[in-house]
Amino acid sequence: MSSRKPYVRKRYWNEPEMGWYERSYFFEIWRGIRITGGVFLANMWKWMTGRKGALTAYYPEEIRADYAAHNRGKHILTQRPDGRPQCVACNMCATVCPAQVIEIDAAFDPDDPEHPKYPSRFEIDYSRCVFCGLCVEACPEDAIRMVKETPDLPGFDRGRMWLKQDELLNWQPKQDVAKPYPAAGAGRTRGAP
């Protein structure tokens, strides 16, 4: 190998080394079209003849089976037995959220002394959510969770990307909270003789 050319540093790390065959452009382009077109035609033939094996999944009718059980997908708000949100509007999730996409309006409910504070509006902006799961970790009430599925996330305008409280509560209702109510062991009342 005495005819080895002297080492020339590449301008960038994967700069191609091309001979006349590659430089002539035509053969390489034809090779690319043949590969892409071959896969396309083979898939289309399978699809036309109704056979399985096409590579495309028909989202959202078809959902990939290989989502992990702990995949962080769409949020849900858990419900108390009476269907109201478990959330107490403490804003821990909204505060910890690195993308600041959670916005909560709190309200006072004088009729429920155990849960006087509840969210009147609870909204998440899915156009900016980074799916980090910190909101779930910050929640002291097990009120917000992320389930593995991510249905209906795409949308055509920014306004629609805000998920409202109603959908968060009801798109996949869950009541099996880790912090049930009423709290166990309510003590004696101060002021009673």
Partner: peptide, 10 residues
């Protein structure tokens, strides 16, 4: 370990 004493809220 005892339950907290409850009192008037609001």
């Amino acid at each position: 370990v005892d339950a907290k004493v409850r009192s008037t809220k609001y």
